[in-house]
C-alpha cells in the first residue's frame, strides 16, 4: 500500500510540475498581452467601466431590491435628481433619496438603471455566446470542409444578411412572442452571419499553412486539427469581434425594447426606460439622459476594448 502511495505522489508531483510549468507559461503570455493592452489608455479606462458595470449588475439586489424599483409610488412622480420623498413600501413608509430622480410612476431611476444593467449584461453575453457557438460551428464546417457545405452555408448566410437586422428581429419576436428568451434569439440570430464569415475566412487563411499539412502527416484527425491547430490560431479576430458584439447586442436589446418588442415595463431595461421618457423630454430631461448616457457609455466602452484587443492581439504589431 505504501508503495502504491509513493507512486501516486510521484505521479502527482510530476503532474504538478507540468501544471506549474503550464501556469508559468500562460502567466508569461498574459503578462505580454497585458503590456500591449495597457499601452492603450482608452481601452484600460473602458475595461474599468465595463468591469464596474458588471459588478453593479451582479450585486444589483444588494443595491436596490427588485420589487422596490418596479413598484409605483405616484406621489413621488418626476422628482428631480437628489430629491427625497416618502415611499410606501412593504406595508410601511420609508424615507428615500432619489439620487437620479424618479420617473412618471415615482420609481427610482438609478435603481432601474442598476437592474437594467443586469438585463443588458445577460443579453449581451448570452447573445454573443449563442451566436458564437452557432456561427463558429457553421463557419468551421464551411471553411474547413469547403465544397457543397461551404456553398450551402454561405448562401444561407447571404440570404440572412440581405434581410435588415431590425426586420429580422421584429419578425422573430412577432412570431415567437414577446419574451426575454425570444429577444435573445432575435439578437443572436442577427449576429450569426458575422461569425460564420469571420470564422470561415480565418480558417481558410490558416488551413493551407504547412503546419496543418504537417498535422495531417502525423495522422491527426479532422477534429483534432480544427480544435488543436486551427482554432487556437484564429482566436484573436474572434475575441475582438465578440467584444464588439457584446456592445452591439446591448444596443440591439435597448433598441428593440424601445420599440416595445423586448423587455416591457415595469421590468427595468435601459431601452424601455428611454422609450417611456420620451413623453417627458420637455420638463424632465433627466429621465432621458440617464438611460441614454448609460447605453452610450457601455457600448462605447465595449467598442474601445475591442479596438484595444485588436491591437494587442495582432502579432504584426508586436514589438
Amino acid at each position: 500500500m505504501s508503495a502504491s502511495a509513493t507512486t501516486t505522489t510521484a505521479v502527482a508531483a510530476g503532474r504538478g510540475s507540468n501544471f506549474a510549468r503550464a501556469l508559468r507559461r500562460s502567466g508569461r503570455n498574459f503578462a505580454q498581452f497585458w503590456r500591449q493592452l495597457s499601452r492603450n489608455k482608452l481601452a484600460v479606462i473602458s475595461l474599468v467601466i465595463v468591469v464596474g458595470f458588471a459588478g453593479v449588475a451582479i450585486f444589483a439586489d444588494l443595491l436596490y431590491e427588485y420589487d422596490f424599483v418596479t413598484s409605483n409610488s405616484l406621489e413621488n412622480a418626476l422628482l428631480k435628481p437628489g430629491e427625497s420623498g416618502t415611499v410606501y413600501y412593504h406595508d410601511k413608509d420609508i424615507e428615500h433619496t432619489f439620487i437620479l430622480g424618479s420617473d412618471n410612476y415615482g420609481r427610482d431611476i438609478l435603481g432601474r438603471l442598476v437592474h437594467g444593467a443586469r438585463v443588458s449584461m445577460i443579453i449581451g453575453f448570452a447573445a454573443v455566446a449563442i451566436s458564437l457557438c452557432a456561427g463558429g460551428i457553421l463557419g468551421s464546417i464551411a471553411g474547413y470542409k469547403g465544397g457543397l457545405f461551404d456553398t450551402l452555408i454561405m448562401r444561407a448566410t447571404d440570404i440572412l444578411l440581405s434581410i435588415p437586422t431590425i426586420l429580422l428581429a421584429i419578425a422573430i419576436v412577432a412570431a415567437l412572442g414577446n419574451s426575454f428568451f425570444n429577444l435573445l434569439i432575435a439578437i443572436a440570430s442577427s449576429m450569426i452571419p458575422g461569425y460564420i464569415r469571420i470564422v470561415r475566412a480565418s480558417i481558410i487563411q490558416v488551413k493551407d499553412q504547412e503546419f496543418v499539412e504537417a498535422a495531417h502527416c502525423i495522422g491527426a484527425g479532422d477534429f483534432r486539427i480544427v480544435l488543436r491547430h486551427i482554432l487556437p490560431n484564429i482566436t484573436s479576430p474572434i475575441i475582438v469581434q465578440s467584444t464588439l458584439n457584446v456592445g452591439s447586442a446591448i444596443n440591439w436589446a435597448a433598441s428593440l425594447s424601445f420599440l416595445g418588442l423586448g423587455i416591457l415595463p415595469p421590468k427595468p431595461e435601459w431601452g424601455n426606460m428611454l422609450s417611456e421618457a420620451r413623453e417627458f423630454i420637455q420638463y424632465a430631461p433627466h429621465l432621458l439622459f440617464a438611460p441614454g448616457l448609460t447605453i452610450l457609455i457601455t457600448v462605447l466602452a465595449y467598442n474601445l476594448i475591442g479596438d484595444g484587443l485588436r491591437d494587442a492581439l495582432d502579432p504584426k504589431l508586436k514589438r
Binding site: R25, F211, E213, A214, C217, I218, G219, P232, N233
Partner: peptide, 20 residues
C-alpha cells in the same frame, strides 16, 4: 503514417506558433 513522414520547407509556417 508511422512509417512515412515529411519534413517541410518553411520553418516558420510548418510549426504551429501556439504550441510549445
Amino acid at each position: 503514417r508511422t512509417r512515412m513522414q515529411m519534413i517541410f520547407q518553411d520553418p516558420y509556417s510548418s510549426i504551429n506558433p501556439r504550441h510549445t
